[in-house]
Simulated scan of single mutants.
Amino acid sequence: MEYPLNPLESPDLARPDAASREALDLPQAVLWDMDGTLVDTEPYWIAAEHELVEAHGGTWSHEQAMQMVGNPLTESAKILQAEGVDLPTDQIVDFLLTRVKEQVRAEVPWQPGARELLTELRERGVPCALVTMSYRSLAEQVVENAPPGVFETLVCGDEVTHGKPHPEPYLVAAQRLGVDVTRCIAVEDSPTGIASARAAGATTVGVEAVVPVPVLPGLSRTPSLALLDVDALARILAGDVVDLIGG
């Protein structure tokens, strides 16, 4: 399936062509999930969910909140409607987004090691894409506070036909960057996102942030981005399966 191409949003830095990157054994690109993976925004989403459900006379548990992690926002809205939130889907999504954007505007809660790894990827000429089920209005706030020139394209939840766990978001990102998705690393924190990236054919690293990252064949796992560098990503792409969580 062909997806519409977008101009590169951040073409500030020249990057090596695909042949040069392959000679260096570097990924052709790194495709990043946002919430939970790069930024610790899941507590913001959970607080907004609590507020909304309780305003409509319901209760919201930690276990219920965990089931929402990684979902497209429209799917999360349906779950909240089933819990008694008597609002249309678009109003639920707008409420959640507004609450999270208010907190991100005050401070972007970068995960440990995130900015450092993004900076190293930029310095070594590896392009990055943000692949998130959050909407563009929130994703742009995060990108504005990222190291300059890191993200060359954004694929957001309000811009795809099929959200995660469907492979479409990652296939769109690779196509926009003009790279082979099977020569890319995807970095994700939720089972939903991991399923999306793996279905697209990307070599995937699971970062255990809010929810457990399952043990799956060929899946590398880490408890923190601070334990990764570009050379580690290159080794993973070459076939090494790195499990820094264990157990």
Rank of each mutant, 00 (worst) to 15 (best):
T203V: 15
V205E: 14
I194F: 07
I194H: 10
A202C: 07
A226L: 04
T203C: 08
S196F: 10
A199P: 02
R221T: 02
T222N: 12
R198H: 06
S196L: 13
G218I: 08
G206E: 03
S220I: 06
D229C: 06
S220P: 15
A195V: 12
V207H: 00
D229T: 07
V230Q: 05
T204I: 01
P223T: 06
A195M: 06
A195S: 15
V205T: 11
G206R: 00
L219F: 11
S220V: 07
A202R: 04
S196T: 13
P223K: 00
I194T: 07
P217N: 04
T203F: 02
G218T: 08
V210N: 10
V210G: 08
V213G: 07
S196E: 08
V211S: 04
P214W: 12
A226P: 04
E208I: 10
T203A: 12
G218L: 09
A226K: 14
L227C: 07
V207L: 11
V213N: 07
T204M: 06
T203R: 14
S196A: 15
L228I: 15
R221E: 01
V211Y: 01
T203Q: 12
V230H: 05
R221F: 02
T204G: 00
P212L: 04
I194G: 12
L216W: 13
V215N: 13
L228S: 05
P217Y: 05
T222W: 13
V213W: 06
S220G: 14
R198I: 11
A209M: 07
A202N: 12
P214K: 11
V205N: 10
V215H: 14
T204K: 00
A200K: 03
A200M: 06
A200F: 03
P217H: 10
G201L: 07
V211D: 00
V213I: 13
R198F: 01
E208K: 09
L216N: 10
G218E: 08
R198L: 06
P214S: 11
V211I: 15
D229K: 05
V211M: 05
I194D: 11
A197C: 06
A209I: 02
S196C: 13
P223A: 02
P217D: 15
G218P: 01
P223Q: 04
G206Y: 02
P212N: 06
R198N: 01
R221N: 03
V207C: 05
A195L: 08
G206S: 05
L225M: 13
L227Q: 15
S224D: 12
V215P: 09
V207N: 03
